[in-house]
Structures are given as structure tokens and as C-alpha cells.
């Protein structure tokens, strides 16, 4: 982090922390914030994923956010999440999502605006480190769909039968984003995409599955209005002291960006304030192209609860690149076995 960045970051944090004091005057406004300060270091001579390099860096895993939610009428509310994230060039504040929520009857709500793409188990709280046990969710799955929010509408219907709660979330919208890739920045736009996700669970077990289709345009690689589809499924078991999580995602993309699929499986055990965990993951593709991302990894980590609001996490990830692929590195590292050490402090307020 450059000194200027740190200053900007401090100003942002101070601003965000000061916000609740002035805003709390309004009883109905709810304010929730989160802060993750993360550091990571790899032993590879190439940049990994969102900027992990062979010296200690804070940028990739440092983020602060504030969520404001205010009722407009009995059935309409407005929610926005402001994010200042370290993996952007500056710590500029950005509204990561902002939507109006309309309650239609007791079990249905409709959101319009900039909403989160409900694809993965942790899609809606990707930036909130305190909501999952890793420093960052396994990128072998989460990089398969490198988009977390879109402009459009989503509906949510919730219900329950017996001890099981379920929700169905259909959505429709469009999205434009510049996504950095090993070959340069891609001006990606997805039009007219439609998808749905289904979540089913009880106290112990949660299952989520989803799919979406859209029309993809990426001028840099000659993709013009071609069909894209995504599929994902995930499960979590949180039983007594045992925590098991697993997800799978696949994408079907036109043009030179390879179709890919990724999965991970995680086993954790809650021992008092400690939650040690181990995760195996793989990202793979059948396509033979220089852009193929193929890697396997094993991650061992522990989460420690510092107090009611804060977590300390430490993890060590061992990546094995497959068949000469650079995996999620920007360029091919000289060794196909790479270790990454990461630590973070995550809190919510």
C-alpha cells in the first residue's frame, strides 16, 4: 500500500466510522459495517488472482464497507452498500449495490436497482470476511463467474415446509464491467440475462443451486452478442462442531475464453474460539488454449474469534498448476507449485 493510498484509506475509514454517529438520529435507519484488513504473500514470480505477489501486500484482501438501509414506506425500503476496496487502484468509495425493495405480500419481495448476483453460497456477502471462514472464498469456484452485481430486477419468494425453509430468486438484467485478464482488460457486457437461484435449508443443512443465460459481448476478443450460460450448485452442513461446505460452478462462454468448471470441498471443526479448516479445490477446462486455467489446490487455515465483533484468520494455500497452464496467475510462474500465505482481521459493526 502506498502512503497516499493509506492516507486515502484512513480518511475513508474515518468517514465511514463517523457516519453512524450522525445518522443514528434516525431510528428507522439501520447501519451495518464491515472491515477486513488482509495481508498475503506468495512464493511465485507472477501475480496471482486479484494481485497477490511475492512480497507482503494488503491490497487484495483489504476492504471496508457500510450498508445503509432505510424504510421509505411500510412496504418499500432502500438499501445501499458503500465499499472502499484495496484491490482497486484507489480507495474511492463506490456503491457496490443500491436497490429499492418492494414487499408484495408477506412472502414475496422485488428488488430493483443494482443488485447482487445470487449465484454462489457467499455471493451476497463476498466482501464480508466475517461471514465465511477463509481469508477469501475459494477462487477456483468464485473466479468462474467474476461478476458479483448487476443492474436490473430480482424477485424473492420465501416459504417453508416443515423444518425446511426455501427461497426462489428469479432475476433479469444487464451488466457492463472491465475485467482484467492475463491478456489485458476486457470490456465485458452481458445483455438480457435471465437466471434463477433456489435455496433450501434447515438449521443444519443448506443447498443452493442456480443458473443464468445471457448475451455476451467482448469486442477485444471478437465476441459479439453470443450466448453465455452459467450453472452453480453448493451445499453447507453446519452440524454441532462440524462445518462442511462444497460448491461447483461451470460456465459456457463463446469465443476464446475457455469454458471452465471449478469445485471445492471444505471441512472445518469448531473448537471453542478456533475453527481449523482444510479445503481442496480445482479449476479445470476441456479446451486447449493458452488461456486455459487449470489448477488444483489445498488450503489449510484457522479462524480465531478475537471477540464478539472480530475474527483473526490465517491460511496457507498450496497451488499445483496443471498441464503447463498458468491457472489464475497473470503469467506463467517458473515453478508450477506455489504457496500463498494469507492472514486477515475481519470485523463487523
Amino acid at each position: 500500500m502506498k502512503v497516499r493510498d493509506i492516507k486515502a484509506f484512513r480518511v475513508t475509514v474515518t468517514f465511514l466510522l463517523a457516519l453512524p454517529m450522525t445518522a443514528l438520529a434516525n431510528d428507522d435507519l439501520s447501519i451495518n459495517g464491515f472491515l477486513s484488513v488482509g495481508a498475503s504473500k506468495s512464493d511465485a514470480d507472477a501475480v496471482y488472482y486479484e494481485g497477490i505477489v511475492d512480497e507482503i501486500s494488503f491490497e487484495p484482501d483489504t476492504v471496508v464497507g457500510v450498508q445503509l438501509s432505510a424504510p421509505v414506506t411500510e412496504t418499500v425500503s432502500f438499501t445501499t452498500q458503500l465499499l472502499a476496496s484495496g484491490n482497486k487502484d484507489t480507495y474511492d468509495l463506490a456503491a457496490d449495490w443500491a436497490y429499492a425493495d418492494f414487499s408484495v405480500g408477506e412472502n414475496t419481495s422485488i428488488r430493483a436497482g443494482r443488485v447482487k448476483l445470487p449465484v454462489f453460497m457467499a455471493s451476497e456477502y463476498l466482501e464480508v470476511g466475517a461471514a465465511y471462514p477463509w481469508v477469501r472464498p475459494p477462487e477456483e469456484v468464485y473466479a468462474v463467474v467474476p461478476v458479483s452485481a448487476f443492474s436490473g430486477v430480482s424477485a424473492r419468494y420465501t416459504g417453508n415446509f416443515g423444518n425446511f425453509d426455501f427461497s426462489i430468486e428469479p432475476y433479469y438484467g444487464s451488466h457492463t464491467e472491465s475485467i482484467p485478464q492475463p491478456t489485458g482488460v476486457l470490456s465485458t457486457s452481458v445483455k438480457e440475462f435471465a437466471g434463477a437461484s433456489l435455496t433450501l435449508g434447515n438449521d443444519v443443512f443448506t443447498l443452493r443451486a442456480g443458473g443464468l443465460q445471457g448475451q455476451l459481448t467482448i469486442p477485444e476478443v471478437g465476441v459479439d452478442d453470443e450466448e453465455l450460460s452459467l450453472f452453480s450448485v453448493g451445499a453447507r452442513i453446519d452440524w454441532e462442531n462440524v462445518l462442511i461446505m462444497s460448491e461447483y460452478a461451470s460456465r459456457d462462454i463463446p469465443g476464446i475464453i475457455p469454458d471452465s468448471e471449478g469445485w471445492y470441498a471444505m471441512l472445518g471443526y469448531r473448537a471453542g474460539k478456533f475453527l481449523p479448516h482444510v479445503t481442496v479445490a480445482q479449476l479445470d477446462t476441456d479446451e486447449v488454449t493458452p488461456l486455459a486455467q487449470k489448477q488444483k489446490s489445498t488450503t489449510v487455515g484457522v479462524q480465531y474469534q478475537l471477540n464478539h465483533a472480530a475474527l483473526l484468520k490465517v491460511e496457507w494455500k498450496n497451488i499445483e498448476l496443471q498441464e503447463g497452464s498458468a491457472g489464475l496467475f497473470s503469467t506463467l510462474p517458473s515453478d508450477d507449485k506455489v504457496s500463498i500465505f494469507s492472514a486477515s482481521i475481519d470485523l463487523t459493526f
Binding site: F34, S69, E124, Y125, A130, A131, R270, T348
Partner: peptide, 21 residues
């Protein structure tokens, strides 16, 4: 409730920041 406070805290972190708080 049958969950310890750490679990309940993690549960609400997920709900709140998913806009389901």
C-alpha cells in the same frame, strides 16, 4: 435456539449483508 453465539453471529453477518437482516 440450539446455536452458540459465534454461530449466531456468523448467521446474522450473512443475512444482514445479503440484505436479509
Amino acid at each position: 435456539v440450539g446455536k452458540d453465539e459465534a454461530k449466531v453471529k456468523a448467521y446474522w453477518n450473512q443475512r444482514i449483508f445479503a440484505g436479509k437482516g
